[in-house]
């Protein structure tokens, strides 16, 4: 993921906190937040994942005028070619190291590099290919604020329940 400009905004932090069912006032009430140890609104620990909103090429967001994999008239807007098999890409791991916590007004830039790739045979999902990505989020002063390590997995069939 390459994101040139991810402006951290108070309203976005509030919506994200609501989505994880977190009612902590530090995520939306400026007056309350002033009296806390951080001294102002901060973002919840997994908020940086919302940088996807600011990645122009992010593949899991519908784009106007382009086919979308989700359903409309048909169960999917993109017909698979080849063998199929029903496998899909899933998120396997996510790790964050916090150098400081995000605040509204921060403007982040994210740069990613590939890490390791490995394969494993799984009982519930068949052959699985894992790919690691390391992303560094830097603020408006070029300071490193969060280092993220993500592992994605491509399964050869749907995961059995």
């Amino acid at each position: 993921m390459a994101v040139d400009r991810f402006p951290v905004e108070a309203g976005h932090i509030m919506l994200f906190a609501r989505a994880v069912g977190d009612t902590n006032q530090i995520y939306y009430d400026e007056d309350f937040a002033k009296g806390t140890e951080p001294g102002g609104i901060i973002a919840p620990p997994t908020f940086v994942q919302a940088s996807a909103q600011f990645d122009p090429d992010y593949g899991l967001r519908p784009k106007i005028g382009q086919p979308w994999q989700g359903s409309g008239r048909e169960p999917t807007g993109i017909q698979r070619t080849g063998g199929g098999g029903g496998g899909s890409g899933l998120h396997a791991e996510q790790h964050y190291e916090y150098h400081r916590h995000l605040r509204p007004g921060d403007i982040l830039k994210a740069t990613s590099r590939p890490g390791e790739t490995w394969e494993r045979e799984g009982r519930r999902a068949g052959k699985m290919t894992f790919r690691e990505t390391i992303t560094e989020y830097r603020d408006q002063n070029g300071e490193l604020v969060i280092t993220a390590r993500s592992v994605g997995v491509q399964t050869s069939r749907p995961v059995e329940q």
């Binding site: 069912g21 977190d22 951080p38 620990p45 997994t46 996510q94």
Partner: peptide, 24 residues
Amino acid sequence: MGLTGKMLTNWLGDGRLTKFGVRF
């Protein structure tokens, strides 16, 4: 992960996490 993080921040206090990693 976000739901798990809510337990952590409720317990540890705000802005206290230095590392947080999970496998799904």
